[in-house]
Design a protein around this nucleic acid. Structure first.
Lengths: 252, 252
DNA sequence: TCCACCATTCGACATTGTCGAACTGCGTTT
DNA sequence: AAACGCAGTTCGACAATGTCGAATGGTGGA
């Protein structure tokens, strides 16, 4: 989005909401004012507006504020509004049914993967992802899939922004040339695998989803504990994930 | 929230976001301006601000806008921020593991139940709920649980606002006195059941969650196809849901 | 009872948000 | 190829509003 005029009071109000991304504590008017460098009465007016419309809620006992449920409603609207989510969901449900592992749907935004849908599989009780969460691209199966099918100019820019590639788990790829070879392998096989690259003990198998212009717009994955996924199972999951991605690609 | 001063430009920006709750189509600047009765340049400034901060996204091909992923991120923050969600989640996962049906966590807002967490069970593939969604209280198990343990004055006000009780499914309770008797039964048993009252073919078993002041602040439920839930299973689910609600109540 | 501090309100005024006019771009029609 | 229609975007004047310091009210602690 090119720089254009920004309405200051709207930007300030959104910044108030974003304060709550970084904390799990309720915040008082004074705390919000201090953290954003606003006067208390300015903060109060913005907070009051957000609260009246359901974006913040005040705890009557201590007058502190927390995020309101309207944001859950809008989050749901983001998903309902997304043709990718709508088309992918039935396939995600089938994958969960078949493998009992957690299935994710992700897109790339500003060089990170964002989870836009997740269906919880009963075997993967400790997969800690959530819708709206962001993760790095270089060490996740979904991220590598999206990188693999990205145009070279954008890929170069994004890789540059990721340096140095930080080790996160036993098998994290930290060398850019090795990562490029890995992306080439993903292009050839159509499947990306995170074998303890992002989170120790976790494995993830992903495939890219293309729009009708042939651009990779999303990636779908099955994740679970590495201990619970044999080589044979990896093969079957890969086949089914690739097939699902292909079907979804054909329907958007 | 008492009426206080509202910052007009913030309220307008939030109204823009809320336009997308009612549609799954992208919207143009002109459409947004028209629907909100604003001039195009006013709408453009608000939209541009929301887009720069990630709350709207512009499709470069046709210049139309859709909701941005920042709202998913904030939706996730709402859940992480909620002590009820944090404490309930492990119990929800156990219930899904044991019964393979969908488990919901809900609260009451403005006379409706709002789903604040959902864990998908593999047997309940066509439960159409989503986090952020709202449903009526009089014909849902979770809603009836929250009504049952509500103070009488508030209960009276909310019941008045629900009239007439509209039939939604074969067994919807449409008589207020019958509903009151049902709420009394729920108080006695500690369990609410929706046996095809809200959605034909669906059954739901719920229990209230109390805070340390003894107020019902949430309800937890197991939902599935009625055809797949025998009387014996209803008993077992009731027992476990009640136990889970009790454990959650003790930890918040 | 007093004090400290936060929430909330008030009102003056400086800043900004609004919007009509104009410009740019693009698809369609002639 | 030129003209037209309409939407996106920009510009600038100015009226409306958002800002904030001062004041008030409320509450918990000393």
């Amino acid at each position: 989005m090119s720089e254009g005029r920004v309405i200051q009071s709207v930007a300030r109000a959104l910044k108030i909401l974003e304060l709550f991304e970084r904390t799990t504590m309720d915040l008082s008017v004074t705390e919000i004012a201090n953290q954003l460098g606003l006067s208390k009465s300015t903060a109060y007016g913005l907070i009051n507006t957000l609260a009246q419309k359901g974006y913040l809620e005040q705890n009557p006992r201590d007058s502190r504020y927390s995020l309101g449920l309207k944001l859950l409603r809008l989050g749901g609207a983001v998903q309902r509004h997304s043709i990718i989510v709508r088309r992918a969901k039935p396939y995600m449900e089938k994958l969960v049914q078949e493998f009992s592992e957690t299935v994710h749907l992700t897109v790339e935004r500003n060089g990170v993967v964002v989870y836009i849908e997740k269906i919880h599989g009963e075997r993967a009780v400790f997969v800690q992802s959530s819708v709206g969460a962001e993760n790095p691209m270089y060490c996740t199966a979904v991220g590598k899939c999206l990188l693999a099918f990205m145009d070279e100019a954008k890929l170069g820019r994004l890789l540059k922004g990721m340096l140095p590639l930080e080790r996160r788990a036993p098998n994290t790829i930290t060398d850019v040339e090795e990562l490029r070879r890995e992306l080439q392998t993903i292009r050839e096989r159509g499947i990306g695998i995170d074998d303890e690259e992002h989170v120790p003990g976790l494995m993830c198998i992903a495939a890219p989803i293309f729009n009708h212009s042939g651009e990779a717009v999303a990636a779908i994955s099955v994740s679970g504990a590495k201990a619970g996924i044999s080589s044979k199972l990896v093969g079957r999951i890969s086949e089914k994930v690739a097939w699902s991605a292909q079907q979804i690609s054909g329907s958007i």
